[in-house]
Simulated scan of single mutants.
Amino acid sequence: MWQFVDDRSDQIVYNTLQHANLVVQAVLFAALVGVALAVVVVWVPRLETLANAVSAIGLTIPAFALVGLLLPLLGIGAFTAFWAVAFYAVFPVLRNAVVGLRGVDPTLLESARGMGMGPVAVLLRVRLPLAWPVIHAGLRVSMQMSMGVAAIAAYVNGPGLGGYIFTGITQIGGANAVNYAVVGTVGVVVVALLADLLLLLLGRLTVSKGIRA
Rank of each mutant, 00 (worst) to 15 (best):
R204Y: 04
V33Q: 08
F29V: 09
S55C: 09
L194V: 14
F82M: 14
A65G: 11
L124I: 01
L69I: 09
W83T: 00
A137E: 05
L199E: 03
F91V: 01
L197D: 02
A181F: 13
D196L: 12
Q18H: 02
N179M: 04
L66D: 06
V85L: 10
A192Y: 13
A38R: 03
V24K: 03
V85W: 11
V190Y: 07
P92Q: 05
V188W: 11
T107H: 14
F79H: 07
A53F: 15
V98C: 08
P159I: 08
K209P: 10
M145V: 15
G138F: 05
A192E: 03
L69V: 12
V13A: 15
G148K: 10
T80R: 12
A51E: 02
V39Q: 02
R127M: 08
R204L: 08
V120A: 15
L201V: 04
V104E: 05
G77H: 04
A195L: 14
G138C: 08
P159S: 07
A31E: 00
A175Y: 13
L130D: 00
V207E: 12
D196Y: 12
E110I: 03
T107V: 14
V104I: 11
G187V: 04
Q3N: 15
M143S: 04
G116A: 00
I169Q: 10
R95M: 07
G100A: 07
A192R: 09
V33F: 14
V178M: 12
L193W: 14
I165M: 15
L66S: 13
V44A: 15
T185P: 08
V39Y: 02
N179E: 07
G203W: 03
S55Y: 01
L32K: 03
G116L: 01
V54K: 04
L199C: 08
A36P: 02
S146I: 05
A137W: 04
N52E: 09
T206F: 12
N176C: 07
V104P: 08
V67R: 08
V190S: 09
Q25V: 10
A78Q: 12
G116Q: 00
N157S: 14
L94W: 05
A38T: 00
L205A: 06
F82C: 10
I152C: 15
G158T: 06
F64T: 13
A137H: 02
V67G: 11
R125N: 09
